[in-house]
Each structure stands twice: as structure tokens, then as C-alpha cells.
Amino acid sequence: MATTLPTLKTPTLLLRPFLDDDIELVFQGLSNPQVIHYYGVHYKSLAETKAQMRWFKELEANGTGAWWAIFDAEGEVFYGGIGLNNLSKVHKKAEIGFWLLPSFWGRGIVLEAANLVCKYGFNHACLHRIEAFVESANENCKNLMNKLDFKHEGTMQECEIKNEKYISLEIYAKIY
């Protein structure tokens, strides 16, 4: 997968664009029941996961987003994925999304990675607004939004069906 996305770094993290060879890492995350509990996508096989890999390419090719694989600073330990999607150049906004393998939860990895991605969105993608839609029951993610200085804008009551039940989504946003 050829990419024009930059690699983003902090002293402890390396975020690089997803590569075709990452399919097993993506499957490891997006087939894990703990990861997909509040995540909108899941896969039951490597073959199904190819759809996710195509989606990463299409986002970049269409200019509608960018996703990175999250690694330790040396690029050896894979943690998860993070990115921007539903990017609108007209409205200068995008939606942030992320997932992390459970063995790395609670270590501040997503907080650090999300700060980096927000900086990229505001400074390089010329965004004015980054939004997040969080299931109302996902307390950890709502706490993270607060730590990232995203403002809670409201709740869309029973706006989607998941596992044959209505769920509500909290709307958060950060303005540049």
C-alpha cells in the first residue's frame, strides 16, 4: 500500500500508516470481543479483514480520512489503530476513531496517540473541528474525551441499532 501519510512520533509512540502486511494485526484487534464491544466494526476471518485494509486505502485515496497503526517508539510492539474518517474539506471537520488491544488498556497510549492525531488534523489537514461519537455506556471513552479537552455537545437518544437493541451516542467535539 503506497501512502502519502506521514509517520507521527512521540518519545514513546510511533504512528505509521497501515500497510497490507498489517492485516493479521488488524484482525487480532477487530476480532477481539473486548475491542469490538464498543467498536462499530468486527471481523470473523482474515478474508473479511481485507475489507478493513481496503477502507484504509480508500480513505486516503479519496481524501476522506487517514488511519495509523499505533506502535511503541521502536515500531516493534503493536498497540492498535487510530485515525480520522468522515473528513469533510468543505466543513473542515473529521471524526476521530481508535481501538487498542486490551493488554495495553489503561496506560495512556490512546491519550498520547489521540493528541498527536488531533495536532495533525488541525495543523496539517486544516481541520477546524474534530468530533467523536461515543456509545453512552462507554465510560472509559467518555473519560478519555474529557482528558483530551473534547466538549460534550449532547446525546443522540436511541439513534442506532446494535445487536438488535437501540443505543444512544454521545457527541463530543474539539474546536481548533
Rank of each mutant, 00 (worst) to 15 (best):
T49A: 01
Q157N: 10
F71E: 09
N140F: 07
A47K: 15
E158K: 14
Y79D: 08
A51W: 10
P11Q: 10
Q34W: 12
E74I: 07
D22Y: 04
F98K: 01
L169Q: 11
G75A: 07
N85A: 05
G97F: 03
Y172A: 00
S168V: 11
Y166K: 07
I167V: 09
I161R: 11
A61L: 12
K162E: 10
F78V: 04
N115D: 13
I23K: 00
F104S: 08
E160N: 06
G108R: 11
A94V: 14
Q34F: 11
I109A: 02
K174S: 07
W68A: 00
M53T: 10
T64G: 00
W99H: 06
A114G: 06
L169C: 03
A47D: 15
F98D: 05
E48C: 04
W68T: 01
T10Q: 04
L8M: 06
N86F: 14
L148Q: 04
N138T: 09
Y172F: 13
I161K: 11
M53K: 09
P11M: 05
N86A: 10
V90A: 06
F71V: 03
G97H: 09
K174Q: 09
G83M: 03
E95F: 11
T10M: 03
V41R: 12
Y43V: 04
F18E: 00
M1S: 08
N138W: 09
R107I: 03
L15K: 02
K57Y: 15
N32L: 04
G106I: 10
L169V: 07
M156R: 15
A173M: 08
H91A: 05
A132V: 08
F122G: 03
W55V: 02
